[in-house]
Simulated scan of single mutants.
Amino acid sequence: MRIHYRETESGIEIVRCFGADGNVELPAVIGGKPVTRAAAYAFSARKAQEDEDVLVCETEESRLFRQQERLLAGEAVESVRFPDTMEEIGKYIFYGCRDLRRLSFSDRLTEIGSGAFTGCRSLSRMDVRFLTGRKSCVPEILGDLWQRIDAVFYEPGSPAPAAYLVFPEHYEEAVENTPARILFTQHHGSGNNYRQCFYGKEMDYRKYDDLFYVAKAQDKTSVLSDLVFARLMYPAGLTGEAEEMYESYIREHGAKTAAYLTDTGNLAALREMSRRGLWTEAALDAAADHASAGAGTAERRSVLSFLMNEKHRLFPVRKGKYEL
């Protein structure tokens, strides 16, 4: 990758990136100085004009593949991983990045420029590394976007998530009552409620879990299933009461939940159902029938094999005895 940058009093400011891969990972250090900022419009294709007063950092790989190199901006950007040294990103940095799907950063990133995520309609996941505490810029980013976004939090030095939180989508719709000549707004999805589950930029897990009744009334099985298993499998801040609530939901909606997990190949969640003893015989039968109806891929066959094994293990067929 080739990087255009500036030197500032606090460190290095990233101006532009060039390369062949839309999955961008920025370095933590350039020229012995920490990378602390990313300039306005750094990844946007809608920048009015390019900066001329820049320095250039280039890897050996970039020199070898110069012919495939392109400006990593706009639709060319698929994911960005900021280093742990990054503290600030400029305004409209991702303006028009319609294919940006994943963003990774640490809790040292505290300053987000205005309009930073304008047009980022595909962003669906944020990976957040806690280094200094429990506060982050996640609520600011969520507040700018309406679509479903999953936020995954990591403790220092741990490769496994400490918490995996689903923030559902939300949107508003203007509806006209023609006879009364009244225009009113309808709100759809529970996402706006879930985006309020922060206190001083720190996640309030209890408030998040308390909103599940709202999600059940407004969101689809796919969202509810992902949300429930994310909380059960990565239970940071999960109380016993909330755990029981989520388990009750799975027991009550076992067939629909298992069908969704089968379609998405989420074997880990299906195993979690077994580990927690959440299967009913009817739900397991329905899940196995659903899996067998489309067992064409290797992933689907693995799911079907697991379900059949669980069926024999949990609900074995008892053979009758006959006497002559």
Rank of each mutant, 00 (worst) to 15 (best):
G19P: 01
G22T: 10
A258M: 10
R275Q: 15
R301N: 07
P179W: 07
E243C: 07
G320H: 05
T132A: 10
K207F: 01
R81Q: 13
M203H: 03
A42E: 02
E75N: 13
G240Q: 09
E172R: 12
G133Q: 12
R63P: 00
F82Y: 09
A258R: 02
K47W: 08
N266A: 09
Y164G: 00
S222M: 01
Y260V: 00
R195W: 04
L232P: 07
S274K: 11
D219S: 03
N309S: 06
K216A: 02
S274H: 07
K256F: 00
V80E: 12
K47H: 09
F212L: 03
S274C: 01
R63I: 04
M126S: 15
S44T: 10
A295K: 12
F130M: 15
L26K: 11
L304H: 03
H253L: 08
K91G: 13
Y199F: 06
L211P: 01
E78N: 13
K311F: 09
K135T: 15
V35N: 01
E75T: 14
N193H: 13
H4A: 10
V54Q: 12
D210V: 01
I250W: 06
V54T: 15
E169N: 08
E172L: 10
M86G: 03
E140F: 04
S10P: 00
A217I: 02
N193R: 14
E243V: 02
E310I: 06
L304Q: 04
G157M: 01
D107M: 09
L145N: 03
F82C: 08
G22S: 11
S124G: 15
C17P: 08
T8N: 05
Y41E: 02
